[in-house]
Structure formats: C-alpha cells, structure tokens
C-alpha cells in the first residue's frame, strides 16, 4: 500500500528495475498457461488461443479504460449495463435504417457511429455528474447501471433484440474474421492496450491521472484541471465501451437484459489483478491486460477439464483473484 502515499512518483518507480511485484501477475499467467497445457492437449491449439483472446477482448478493451478511471481515483460500475444498452441501441438503429439503406457499408457505419456516439455520451453523463455535480462516483455509476439495464430491458420489451439476419451475416466478419488469421477483436484489443500503455506512461494525461488519484488537492494546487481530467477518464471509458460493443453485436447479433451482466466487476477485478491500486494514484495498463487474460483463462481451463465440479467455478476464480493480488502485496512489502 506504500504506493498510494507516494503515488505521483510511482510510475517512475515502476520503470526503475524489475521489481518482484511487477512479475506477480505475469507469473500467475504463466502458471495458468502451464496448468492448462498439462490438463488438455488442445489448450495451446490455435483455435483455443484465438477463442480465449477474442472473448477477452470485450472486457479487455473496457478494462483498459477502467484502468484510467481507477488510477484517477474514480470507479465506474455502469459499464456492463452501458454495453448492453449500447448494443441494444445499435441493433435498433441498424434495424430501423435497414429498409431505407439496405444491407451494406452505410448501414454498418451507421451502427458503428451509433455505438461510438452513445458510448461518448454515456461516459460524458457519468463524468459530468461525478465532476461538476460532485456526486460520489460509486453512487452515480450505481444509478446509471440501473438506468441502462432497465432501458435495455424496456427497449427489448423484456425479451431479446435481434439484428436482422442479413445484417448479422454482413456484420459477422467484425468479430469472426481479421488479418492474417488474427481476428478483429484481438487486433483492436492489442491496439487499445498499446495506446493505453503509451498514454499512461508517456503523456501528461497519464501523469495527471496518477497525480489526481494520489491526492487531488495537491494536483489542483499544481494547476492540474482536476475536473476536466476526471471527465476525460469517464468519456474515454464510455468510448471504449462503445468500441467493445461494436464487436460484441456481430458475435450473436442480439442484446438482452442478460448482456454484459457483471462485466463491470470483471473489468475492475482485471485492473486490480494487474497491479493498479484500487484507491487510485498508480495504474498499469499492461498489468490490466494480464489480469483480463488470467480471468478468461480460468474459465477456459475449467471448461476444458472435468477436474473440478462446475459448481465450484466461482470459488476457483475467487481464489485465483485473491492469490494474484496477495502475490503483489507480499513482494511489495519486501521492496
């Protein structure tokens, strides 16, 4: 926990040498890969690796945005519901535009634009309520979480919103195909992660986030526009939720109130496993990526083996999350 008090300097410290606590999440990931490979020979097959990476992409892209929000001392519980709502909206808009536009690039671009704009607006609403209205992030996003979840249920009339069949076929390549055998979700996730890492480490914005999360009063006296920076973290997260949704919709071509349930907690868990401090002040984007992969691998390995009763899947996940965090804390105490 020492990093919280000296948070502003933490990113610089992380760059110094190879500290043990930096290795914690990586070691956990390597251990999981070894366990998986020993338990099932198909674990390292190209098909399975692609499946796991592609399904990690939704939570992963969102978690990169969540890293900034948490680093700046915030929290966003609404992302799962927001994703469901944006997915529902995107499907509705595309279905409505279909008769006039026909299946083709324009209607797909319209859907993509809808998702991006809706994400930006949703993130902006969260951010404005938290910064200018000065309401606790936990409360604001708990509220919007309920609002978006109800809205998608209402839009779907309690059932499921389904994309027109022809549209779905046209849109499917967004999830299932890609370049050189690497599917789009994986490519987008990688790009988002790299940009996130660069922004966190090398830009003023990244340093401001850490400074605000560490001590917002000091940041304010250092002439950081605290409210604006915080707002940017929520808007950025909203945009990333929109991007994740663009690839979610083509996968099954539907959205319902069951879409994106608990994504917010998975994203937050991934951020914390990756070494970002929940209280803010220090963030690590590449750690978040490792965290996301750890979470998806646990589910994947449990599905590939009969070793554990499926009733215990949640318990195994819980134990590994806590262990991964303990691994960091212990080595931190030692440095």
């Amino acid at each position: 926990m020492t990093t919280t008090t000296e948070g502003g300097a933490a990113p610089a410290k992380a760059r110094h040498g190879v500290n043990l606590h930096v290795l914690g999440p990586i070691l956990a990931l390597i251990a999981l890969v070894i366990v998986g490979a020993l338990m099932n020979s198909n674990f390292l097959s190209a098909g399975n690796v692609t499946n796991v990476l592609a399904r990690s992409a939704f939570i992963g892209i969102i978690a990169v945005g969540m890293t900034f929000v948490i680093t700046a001392g915030g929290l966003d519980l609404s992302v799962g519901s927001m994703a469901a709502f944006i997915a529902g909206l995107m499907i509705l808009v595309m279905n409505l535009a279909l008769p006039s536009m026909g299946v083709g690039l324009p209607v797909m671009l319209l859907g993509i634009a809808t998702a991006l704009v809706a994400g930006l607006v949703a993130g902006w609403i969260n951010g404005i309520l938290i910064t200018t209205m000065r309401i606790e992030a936990f409360i604001v996003t708990l509220g919007t979480m309920g609002i978006y979840r109800s809205l998608v249920t209402w839009l779907a009339d309690g059932g499921t919103l389904s994309l027109d069949f022809g549209l779905r076929t046209a849109l499917q390549p967004l999830y299932y195909s890609g370049i050189l055998g690497i599917s789009w979700p994986i490519i987008v996730f990688a790009i988002v992660a790299i940009i996130g890492e660069v922004v966190m480490r090398m830009t003023a914005f990244g340093r401001y986030c850490a400074a605000i999360g560490s001590n917002d009063q000091v940041a304010r006296y250092s002439s950081v526009n605290v409210n604006r920076m915080r707002l940017y973290t929520y808007v950025g997260l909203g945009l990333l939720v929109g991007i994740a949704t663009i690839m979610y919709v083509p996968r099954l071509g539907s959205a319902s109130s069951a879409t994106g349930v608990l994504w917010e907690l998975e994203a937050i868990a991934a951020v914390i496993i990756g070494g970002t401090v929940l209280k803010g002040g220090f963030g690590r984007v590449w750690g978040t990526v490792i965290g996301v992969l750890i979470l998806s691998l646990i589910g994947n390995i449990l599905n590939l083996t009969d070793a554990v009763s499926p009733y215990l899947n949640g318990a195994i996940q819980g134990v590994i999350i806590v262990l991964a965090v303990i691994l960091q804390r212990e080595s931190k105490a030692g440095d």
């Binding site: 249920t153 009339d157 309690g158 499921t160 109130s257």
Partner: peptide, 13 residues
C-alpha cells in the same frame, strides 16, 4: 418477476 430475461419477458407479455 420483472422481465429480466427472455422467458420472463414472455411471461410478462
């Protein structure tokens, strides 16, 4: 129960 999944949605209807 509220229409939180497909079956419940049908039930509400």
């Amino acid at each position: 129960p509220a229409a939180t999944h497909g079956w419940a949605g049908g039930m509400n209807f």
